[in-house]
Design a binder for these strands. Structure first.
Lengths: 133, 133
DNA sequence: AATTTTTTGCTATAATATATCTAATTCTAA
DNA sequence: TTAGAATTAGATATATTATAGCAAAAAATT
């Protein structure tokens, strides 16, 4: 529950943050800021895109959610902060969770690793099937 | 040698492309388009940033170089197209090559993987040392 | 050498994201 | 319960990265 965590982390609870938290909670679609904004706007049309960006950044900085980069020029956000990887379909552009919990590798003194991100690119089942027709 | 490959791939050889190829050849710094532009500009100040972008995209699309995304909002380019990973220093922002040649995993029919990208984030030796002072 | 095709460079525009600033809201504590 | 301090929201200007469009130039072909 993101809303609960917001308070724990010292952020004030506002209707906007509550709403953004609800949009993110359990969300497996890895939405961009724009995606979140669209969803939020449907419920509360007056919420500003700036607020969405600020909230997403705050939550990501606090480690409540995860910022994800798959090379499409925009950040995606994932409420699942447990270690897992992602698969990006080059056709439909959807991002899927992969339960490969690759451990942080040990590169010795040379590099102290604090975060790892594995992204796989290819074609999801549906898009493979489409091409065969 | 990138210049050689340019011709093989059916692209015309121009002074601009030759220069961009030379800047990239053996380059281990993972430059952004802007970085490449700056280097090129020092030698040939009239080369346009648009040409740099177009050339980098062409080369990446042809698989001559690799487009790399580490989540800093801009694309980086790597002339080393052999399988390897990258380490990003969160302090100095440099990108280092990691010779971990993780093989493409097999996710079965569900996902057909064609490319994998592993990025590790942390602190390089130099930046670790700095903090200890 | 002329022609076709590609490429360049300029610039406008797009897309994503952040900064700034005032008004409004939240929360605390009296 | 409310006054006041601190934070947040919203509007918008601006920054940053990248692409699009087009005329002029250059490259390769014939």
């Amino acid at each position: 529950m993101i809303v609960k965590t917001i308070k724990d982390k010292g952020l004030k609870i506002t209707p906007q943050r509550q709403l953004i938290g609800e949009v993110l909670d359990g969300n497996k679609t890895h939405p961009s800021a724009e995606d979140v904004y669209k969803k939020v706007s449907k419920i509360a049309p007056t919420v500003s895109i700036a607020t969405v960006y600020k909230t997403l950044n705050s939550l990501a900085d606090l480690g409540v959610i995860q910022r994800l980069d798959v090379g499409d020029g925009k950040a995606h956000f994932d409420p699942d902060i447990t270690p897992h990887s992602h698969f990006v379909c080059l056709n439909c552009k959807r991002i899927f969770d992969i339960s490969t919990s690759a451990p942080l590798p040990d590169f010795g003194e040379e590099f102290r690793v604090v975060k790892a991100q594995a992204v796989y690119y290819g074609y999801c089942k549906e898009c493979q099937d489409q091409k065969e027709e």
